[in-house]
Design a protein around this nucleic acid. Structure first.
Lengths: 107, 107
DNA sequence: GTGATCGATAACCTGATGGCTATTGATTGA
DNA sequence: TCAATCAATAGCCATCAGGTTATCGATCAC
């Protein structure tokens, strides 16, 4: 039972897949064909990556005739942002505790 | 030649490894033994994870006698924060462009 | 000095993952 | 209707990553 952080980190860890996501962020909605053209890998490979991105909630798809348009879902990055601020928060807390300790030692 | 984002995402993608890093963030400096005790995997496995975390710049080590103390290096998370804000930025830019377009169409 | 402990390294095994080709299903256009 | 195009799926393969046990070097305690 992997949590949200697991899924996000694992999904974004692959360079090819992350490049696809970045492209969708930069340039907005794209068809599978367009994404394949720039990806350097085969169309099935791109489809697989898009499937994983979709599972992770990072993209959504829109069918239009025989083509599928994908777009980035920025909201899906929230857990990642939360995680990093949490880690930074722990660090600050420990720092504050240290300051408190030093202050108390000073008296 | 993987870039900084690659290394960070890949390093943090593994749950065991990320748990070690989180623990170092929460509780500060820890010895390998202490980390192993809570990790659920063997000591060599933990050492390997710590090696990768160190390569990624996420932790530093301090030798004291025969034990090694590891601590989190929060600064190493910056590229990750930058990346997420950049992605969010792209999104906003596209949104602004859309607004501009609509505004121009409105006139 | 000797035995015990700590952590890193070596060597190996296994499962997961990312890639490919081939194929299928669906839609479009001639 | 039939050929062509688009994207998803199936099936396969090779690589890699994370795990293990065994071992080694170094430090400490006795």
């Amino acid at each position: 039972m992997p949590n949200a952080h697991d899924v996000l980190f694992r999904t974004l860890a692959d360079p090819t897949r992350r490049a696809i996501f970045e492209r969708l962020c930069r340039e907005g909605e794209q068809t599978v064909g367009a994404l394949t053209a720039q990806s350097g890998v085969s169309q099935p490979a791109v489809s697989k990556h898009l499937g994983l991105l979709r599972q992770a909630g990072l993209v959504r798809d829109r069918h239009e005739g025989r083509q599928t348009h994908y777009s980035a879902q920025l909201g899906a990055l929230s857990p990642l942002i939360d995680w990093t601020s949490q880690m930074a928060g722990f660090w600050e807390t420990r720092f504050d505790d240290l300051e408190d300790l030093l202050k108390r030692m000073d008296q």
